[in-house]
Write a protein that binds this DNA or RNA. Structure first.
Length: 124
DNA sequence: GTTCTTACA
DNA sequence: TGTAAGAA
């Protein structure tokens, strides 16, 4: 069986991962994966879906986590990824501000002091 | 022939 | 989880 347009049918995925199509449908029913559908309601799986399914199998078979637990863990993973993005952006913004502040301070130091001129006033 | 849904052991 | 029936 070969991949078409980057998508796999449920039969292809089942063969690749050695699981029953029913199991894959069950994962979807539990909200763990969301393969897109064709106009004819046929499930189409991406490479990312396959990676997710591998992760699900690893959690359930090797660690004994049930599907509800895997669902929570996958949600947490996504949240952590989003938090990493936020932290990264904050770091960039903070570094930029610090740089600007330092540039401002150094420019003040470099300014030449104003010349003081002594003026003599002669009286009668 | 493949996939979908639903159901049952 | 595995298997099966009936429809699409």
């Amino acid at each position: 069986m070969k991949r078409k347009n980057g998508y796999y049918t449920i039969g292809m995925v089942a063969e690749i991962l050695n699981v029953h199509p029913h199991t894959l449908r069950e994962y979807e029913r539990e909200g763990l994966i969301k393969p897109i559908r064709t106009a004819g309601n046929i499930r189409l799986y991406t490479d990312k879906d396959i990676e997710d399914i591998k992760f699900i199998r690893e959690m359930t078979q090797e660690l004994g986590v049930n599907l509800a637990g895997v669902d929570i863990i996958m949600r947490m993973k996504k949240q952590i990824e989003q938090l990493h993005e936020i932290i990264e952006n904050l770091e960039k913004a903070l570094r930029k501000r610090i740089e600007e502040e330092q540039a401002r301070k150094s420019s003040l130091v470099k300014k030449e002091p104003a010349h003081v001129v002594e003026i003599k006033i002669e009286r009668e």
